[in-house]
Computed example of a mutant assay.
Amino acid sequence: MSLVGAPATYSLLLPPGWVRIPLRGRTRESLEEKVFRGIEKVPADVSREKGMAYRLHVRRRVEKLAEDARRSGGLDLYVPVRARPGGAVLAASFVVAEAVGEGGVRPEVLLGRLAVEAGEVRGVGETAGVRREYVKEPDEGEPEADTVTRHVDYVLPVPGDEGRWLTVSFSTAGDGDPVSPFTRAVTELFDAIMSTFAWSHRPSEGPFAG
């Protein structure tokens, strides 16, 4: 399918248990409906105190993720909400955000630079993008971020709109080991989600409403 002009939005197919939280409208309502309401029920073998502490931890973590993403130009936050065996939700998320490229620099030139610096060129949504994978140590001054995380970033030029880009930034703590088979499997899940990325020209949608 050939694209005429710049797309209005994008789409992704999510696996069961993942939800999209818009960051430019109805964020609070979406968090309550899609995330927080689902953690109200505590398994019978979990004490009330532990259940309350867990719900508070999830609420604080997701609210901070949403606020940080919004301040960084985020369009949408994606998080898993279905608990794994044992009662815990998968520690993973990704953010789709807008970015502005260098004025006068063609997308293929900038992609080439990014690939040489820290990534690889991949086809995503009928366009060429750059994928970068790395491990990040906890940030100092954030007591809750005490786990090493594995990250994957995609940088995609918006077709037909030179100088406009989308970034898709994923992170996961996995099982606490950034190189374990489980953590790598979670990362592969994100890459599988990205393989479904598509641009859309739906006129009724706002710019990159997702």
Rank of each mutant, 00 (worst) to 15 (best):
D139T: 04
D177G: 03
R202D: 12
K50A: 02
E33F: 08
D191G: 03
E144Q: 06
V121C: 04
V62I: 14
P43T: 06
Y54G: 00
V155R: 07
V42P: 14
A6Q: 04
V95G: 09
E108Y: 10
T187Y: 00
T187W: 02
G38K: 12
A97F: 08
V79M: 05
S30V: 00
G129Q: 09
E126L: 11
P159V: 08
P107M: 12
V35C: 09
T127F: 00
R82I: 05
A173C: 01
L13G: 08
G141N: 06
G160F: 02
D76K: 04
P7L: 01
E205G: 00
R28N: 04
P107E: 07
G160D: 05
G103V: 12
R70L: 06
E98M: 07
I193E: 03
A209W: 10
P157L: 07
P157G: 10
G103C: 03
G123T: 10
V100H: 03
P43A: 07
A145S: 13
L156V: 15
R82E: 09
G125I: 09
L77T: 01
A83V: 11
V109D: 15
P16C: 02
R20F: 05
E140Q: 04
P203F: 09
P207R: 15
R71T: 00
R184P: 01
A115H: 04
A8G: 01
I193P: 05
V135W: 13
D191F: 07
G38Q: 11
E133G: 07
D76V: 13
D161P: 00
L12T: 10
R24S: 02
H201V: 14
P16H: 05
A198R: 08
K64A: 15
W165Q: 14
A99E: 10
A145E: 15
P138K: 06
D139V: 06
V58A: 01
G210C: 04
T147W: 15
E102C: 06
L77V: 01
P43K: 07
R131H: 03
W18K: 02
G119M: 08
S11G: 14
M1W: 06
S30L: 01
V155Y: 13
L114H: 13
A198F: 00
V62F: 05
R84H: 09
D139N: 06
A88C: 04
R61Q: 08
D45A: 15
L156I: 12
V42M: 14
V109G: 07
E102S: 13
A6K: 08
V89E: 08
G210Q: 02
R82Y: 04
D68I: 00
V19I: 01
T27Q: 13
S180V: 13
R106P: 09
A66P: 02
D139F: 07
Y134I: 02
G141M: 06
A44K: 15
T183K: 12
S93K: 03
G174R: 12
G101D: 03
E144G: 04
A99L: 09
E63D: 02
V96Y: 05
E67F: 00
P85M: 10
K34T: 05
K34E: 09
G210K: 00
L111G: 01
A118G: 15
V130A: 14
E102V: 15
F197W: 13
E108M: 10
D45Y: 13
P22G: 03
L114K: 14
V35H: 07
A99I: 04
L114F: 15
T172Y: 09
S11N: 12
R122C: 06
R184F: 05
R113L: 15
A209I: 01
G112N: 10
A192L: 08
F94V: 02
R59G: 01
D76Q: 12
